[in-house]
Simulated assay, not measured.
Amino acid sequence: MEKIFSYLIDKYSGVGKNFIDAFLIFLFGWYGIKILIHFIVKMMNRSHIDPIVINFVKSIIHIGLKIILLITVIAQLGVPVTSFVAVLTTAGAAIVLGLQDSMKGIVSGIVILFAKPFVKGDIIEVNTYIGKIQEIQLLYTILMTFDNKMVVIPNNELASSTFVNYSHEDKRRVDMTIDIHYHNDVELAKKLIMNVINQHPYTLKEPLVYVRVSEYRENSIAISLRVWTETEHYYDLKDDLTEQIKKAFDREGIVIPYSQLDVHVHNSDETQN
């Protein structure tokens, strides 16, 4: 009997030790991964990185470290892992090839979130669309137009295209051109425009307001105006100036010309014959 126990102990003592070592590696590795991920997430939060990027990086590190832990545990048990690693590599390559377009979108999304050419709430113009950034995801950016239409733009397309960010700076310049009739008093028209601009609460005193004659057109004199305002008040100021300048012109008899066609009918004796 003692010989049998001795034989079993000699035969399986190595196996038992491997199981214990594998269990300890799994246990410490599992909790070590949690601690490491918690530390990495904490560091990224301190760097004010976008939460979408943090969650993505957290998922990639979590999956990668657990795969490494699994391979280590299997190797500790004495199981050959060469073929296992080869299968994982082949499967990973196949998945990457199959999701090639999606991976491009993810990479573009990460670039946008890190570079921050725009952030949530910015007003941008891209591909004939103008609207406010509603959400930036890893694959798509959601744009809400001013008439409340949702535009979904793939990040790889957005990252490779030219767009205009109207909210990047704190101040914007309102550029307008007002046409008046040749018979009107130019100086009076300029004075009325300046009065409307200076009385508006959204007008900034610096840089200085610009009101000058810019062009002599076929049927009108063009007066250009440039006035600075805070970005959030841009559209309000532009619309108010358009409306209030017209009212000021009407009060003082300044005429804004418009295209018209005069038709003259001549009645001659030859036509009657």
Rank of each mutant, 00 (worst) to 15 (best):
L8Q: 09
L8C: 05
I9S: 03
I9F: 08
D10R: 13
D10K: 14
K11G: 00
K11P: 02
Y12D: 00
Y12S: 10
Y12C: 06
S13D: 12
G14N: 11
G14F: 10
V15M: 13
G16S: 11
G16F: 13
G16N: 10
K17L: 14
N18K: 13
N18I: 04
F19W: 03
F19N: 00
F19Q: 02
I20F: 10
I20R: 04
D21A: 12
D21Q: 13
D21N: 13
A22N: 00
F23I: 02
F23E: 02
F23L: 02
F23W: 05
F23A: 08
L24S: 09
I25F: 08
I25Y: 06
I25E: 07
F26L: 09
F26N: 08
L27G: 07
F28C: 01
F28R: 04
G29Q: 01
W30Y: 14
W30N: 12
G32R: 01
G32K: 07
K34N: 15
I35K: 14
L36H: 12
L36A: 13
L36C: 04
I37E: 08
H38K: 12
H38T: 10
F39H: 10
F39S: 12
F39E: 12
I40G: 02
I40E: 06
I40N: 11
I40M: 08
V41H: 10
V41S: 01
K42C: 13
K42T: 15
M43Y: 15
M44G: 09
M44T: 02
M44I: 05
N45S: 10
R46Q: 14
R46V: 10
I49G: 03
P51D: 09
P51Y: 02
I52Y: 07
I52F: 07
I52R: 11
I52L: 04
V53Y: 06
V53K: 09
I54L: 00
I54E: 05
N55A: 15
F56N: 04
F56Q: 04
K58G: 03
K58P: 00
K58R: 12
K58M: 08
K58Y: 07
S59H: 13
S59L: 04
I60S: 01
I61N: 04
H62S: 15
H62L: 04
H62W: 11
I63A: 13
I63C: 13
G64M: 11
L65T: 07
K66E: 15
K66V: 13
I67V: 07
I67G: 04
I67F: 12
I68V: 14
I68H: 07
L69Q: 06
L69I: 06
L70G: 09
L70F: 14
V73T: 00
I74R: 05
I74Q: 03
I74H: 07
A75G: 12
Q76P: 00
Q76H: 01
L77Q: 00
G78T: 11
V79S: 08
V79R: 04
P80F: 08
P80G: 11
P80Q: 09
P80M: 09
T82D: 11
S83W: 12
F84S: 06
F84L: 11
V85C: 07
V85W: 10
V85R: 02
V87F: 08
L88C: 08
L88S: 07
T89H: 01
T89M: 08
T90G: 06
T90V: 03
T90F: 04
T90E: 00
T90W: 01
A91P: 00
A91I: 02
G92I: 03
A93R: 02
A93K: 11
A93F: 13
A94I: 03
